[in-house]
């Protein structure tokens, strides 16, 4: 019996290795070609950093990269603060409309981004000029990114709060702590990993977001994914491989850090 299970384990690992090959080979091929000298992706492979050097002088891409980082950082702060507050209310209080409010988190997750992005474009086009704002631009992109990040933050922090040991807070209160002290010295450290994970999710959501930014970016003002899309449509160059490699490295790095704080898929 034991022996049989071990064979099953071997097959399982082999199969999973094949799935991982499918998931990673294209990314590795793309990254490898970023270090190849030939502008036409020709073999044999000659190691060169020429495409990364070209990036360093490409003002359009650098600008787009800077925009992406700033938007992702502001998005992270705003979405984490607002989302954590809402998650706290859901876990602390039973009130009328609570379930409806939680159901309202589903449309932003399930409706295709194409529909949400174009809807934002229409709405901002009508309303922003009334406030003296341009309908498209970095402010519009930021508004959209926060909307996409918020439901994830509320769900991730809410999951952490669901296992919150309420007795600890009651104990602190019994021992004479003020509500403020209880929050900062007892509750906050317990929910902190959930909040950090949510913040990293929010960062990744914004940094990788293409569809919403694409519709809300006016000509000349772009984020990295929009700029990459525009370049791909013009034709493939190893410079796109170079910037893509950097992006993949950053997002995977962020998610590896997140994995320390958040267990994907529940119990393992």
């Amino acid at each position: 019996m034991k022996r049989k299970l071990d064979i099953g384990g071997g097959i399982a690992k082999t199969y999973l290795a094949l799935v991982l090959l499918f998931l990673y080979v294209p990314i590795l091929v793309m990254a490898l070609l970023a270090f190849n000298r030939s502008p036409l992706y020709q073999m044999p492979f000659e190691f060169d950093l020429v495409w990364f050097k070209a990036l360093a002088e490409n003002d359009r891409l650098l600008n787009a990269g800077w925009n992406s980082v700033v938007i992702a950082l502001v998005n992270t702060v705003v979405a984490t603060v607002l989302g954590t507050a809402a998650a706290l209310a859901f876990s602390r209080y039973q009130f009328r409309g609570r379930q409806v409010m939680q159901l309202l988190l589903l449309p932003p997750i399930t409706i295709p981004w194409l529909v949400i992005g174009t809807a934002m474009l229409v709405f901002f086009y009508w309303t922003f000029p009334l406030m003296g704002l341009r309908p498209r631009g970095l402010h519009a992109i930021l508004l959209g990114h926060v909307a996409l990040s918020l439901p994830y933050v509320i769900i991730v922090v809410g999951a952490r709060l669901a296992d919150f040991p309420k007795a600890v807070e009651e104990a602190a209160a019994t021992l004479g702590a003020t509500p403020w002290q209880t929050f900062w010295r007892v509750s906050a450290p317990i929910i902190a990993p959930g909040v950090v994970a949510a913040a990293l999710f929010a960062f990744a959501t914004s940094f990788d977001q293409f569809v919403i930014s694409y519709f809300l970016a006016p000509p000349g003002v772009t984020t990295l994914p929009v700029e990459i899309y525009t370049s791909i449509r013009k034709g493939f160059t190893p410079e796109i491989n170079a910037i893509s490699t950097i992006i993949i490295a950053v997002s995977m790095g962020v998610m590896l850090i997140t994995a320390r704080f958040y267990k994907f898929g529940g119990e393992r």
């Binding site: 793309m30 999710f201 293409f210 994914p225 998610m255």
Partner: peptide, 16 residues
């Protein structure tokens, strides 16, 4: 390893 690419850039993965 399986969920990692899921949170990395969709556009870049298509490009790859």
């Amino acid at each position: 390893l399986i969920v990692l690419p899921f949170w990395s850039n969709a556009l870049v993965r298509i490009f790859s």
